[in-house]
Structure formats: C-alpha cells, structure tokens
C-alpha cells in the first residue's frame, strides 16, 4: 500500500490534514511532518525524512503547503530509500484524494495522479442540459424515456419522506444487459440517500472506494450535474444532501457490479 506524508509549516495543520484524510482511509499510513521541529512555524528536513520512512510501504506520496516545504520534500525524496512522489496539489483536497486512492489499492503513480487531479476538480462537471446530449457515451437522464418519477431536485426532496431506497437497474445500453459476455453496456439506478448527511465526506469516500477497483466508468448525477464516482471531491461537490435522489450510471464490463455496490451502500445508510 502507498503511504502519504503531509508537509506543512504548521505542525497543527499537518496533523489536521492527516487526521481528515485518515478518516477516509483507515488503512493508509498518513504521516504529518509540520513545523520547524522546535515548536515554531517552519519546515524540518529531518522530520520529513522520518515521516517518509514511517509512511513507507510500496511508495510514498508527499503533499505540501508552501514553497520551502516543497524544497524540503524534494530533498528528502531524493535521499529516501523508497520511491517518493512530491505532488503539487491543494493540501487538503490533494491529501484526501491521495488517501482514498491509496486505500483503494492504487499504485504510486495513480495515488500521485489522484492528488494532482484534485487541483483541477472544482468538484463536479456540468452535464448537457438537453436530454439527448451525449456525454462520453453516457446519456443523461431523459424524463420521457423513464417510467418512474422524473429526476429533479424537487423529486429528490419529495423522496425524503416515503421512499427508502429504490435502486433497481433501470436501463442497459444497446446490446443487452451490461456485464454479459464482456459487453460494454450502460447501467443506471436511482438511489435515495437514506443517511442524514448525504454524499458528505465519509459516504463519498465509501462510494469512491467501492467502485475504485472495477472496470467501469461510474458517475453519480444530481441536480443536473454529474460527478466521477471515483473522486471523493467530485462526489462531495454535488451537494447531494440526506434524502436526495441521485442517479448512478455505470458503463463498462463491471457496470452492474458497480451500481450494485453503490446501491448496497445507500441501502445500509452508508453504515452511519
């Protein structure tokens, strides 16, 4: 497993970021290296070196806060006995994204990429407004094509009362049910978030982890937007609160399994 090191000028900041990221990645070693080693603000080469050793594992990804933290991290990385990637990423988002990727068993490059991409993610991408608009092979929900309730923020709100979970597979792509004989199909399910906080940090991390290893592209849609289900930050950025009705759309060999996993999590109230 890949470890994570958080380098900050502030000891408390490094520890706080490590704590926050650790909540979503219980098995990942996240070592904070903050402060000048003397109780003040600064960066400490020796502390960073030790944190890298502590995080160890199959490699270490380092995130940092300000300029000199990068230089100290670079030096420590060059001297380290194991592979280290120092990643330019927003500290909090980068640490969270990297931790979740590492928890999912991603390799060093993938964990580093997850942190790096956190910089580009404003949290979500907007889907096309027109119902028929194709988006990378995944069609947005078209009210006319569905027998069930239309998906809108209003319906999501109304779902808060009676519905618990209805997560039946609604549709597959042309060519039959997804998953059969390796066909690349599309699987959709509408899921009500029965937990109180919705797709907040921890539930989002559970979803991202659940689909991370699968051969499927999975998105979660809510309120006209969609988020990559492997991205904790993107999922959180949807702002889907408790009681919200979201749509899970998966394409790929493991699409059925991906949707079932998300349904399962939602059905259990994300183990809250």
């Amino acid at each position: 497993m890949i470890g994570l090191v958080v380098v900050s000028h502030s000891r408390r900041l490094a520890e706080g970021v490590a704590e926050l990221a650790g909540q979503m990645a219980p098995d990942v070693t996240i070592a904070p290296a903050g402060g000048d080693g003397d109780g003040g603000l600064g960066t400490d080469y020796v502390a960073v070196t030790e944190a890298i050793e502590q995080a160890g594992g199959d490699g270490v990804v380092v995130v940092y806060d300000l300029g000199s933290a990068r230089m100290v991290a670079d030096m420590a990385a060059e001297e380290a006995a194991i592979e280290v990637r120092v990643v330019d990423a927003p500290l909090v988002e980068g640490a969270v994204a990297a931790a979740v990727a590492a928890q999912g068993g991603a390799n060093l490059e993938a964990v580093a990429a997850a942190a790096r991409q956190a910089a580009q993610e404003s949290g979500w991408t907007t889907t096309a407004d027109s119902p028929g608009g194709a988006d990378r092979g995944l069609r947005p929900p078209s009210p006319s094509s569905q027998g069930g309730p239309t998906i809108s923020a209003g319906d999501a709100e109304s779902g808060r009362g009676g519905l618990s979970v209805f997560g039946e597979i609604m549709e597959t792509g042309a060519g039959g049910r997804a998953g059969e004989a390796g066909e690349v199909g599309e699987v959709r399910a509408r899921v009500v978030l029965t937990n109180s906080v919705g797709l907040h940090a921890r539930p989002a991390a559970l979803v991202a982890r659940a689909v991370a290893g699968l051969d499927a592209r999975v998105v979660v849609r809510f309120d006209g937007r969609e988020a990559d289900a492997t991205s904790v930050l993107a999922l959180m950025g949807l702002g889907a609160a408790g009681g919200a009705l979201v749509e899970v759309v998966a394409a790929g060999v493991d699409a059925v399994e991906a949707v079932r996993r998300v349904e399962g999590l939602a059905a259990r109230g994300f183990d809250e």
């Binding site: 000048d36 080693g37 600064g42 960066t43 400490d44 080469y45 020796v46 300029g67 000199s68 230089m71 100290v72 670079d74 030096m75």
Partner: peptide
Amino acid sequence: LISTVGGAAGPLYGT
C-alpha cells in the same frame, strides 16, 4: 545546513 536551517534557506544553501 539542510538539517538545521528551516525555511527555504536550508534546502537552497544545502543544495
């Protein structure tokens, strides 16, 4: 210098 100077000066002068 690398191990005792904090801030940017440690890594820069150390290097």
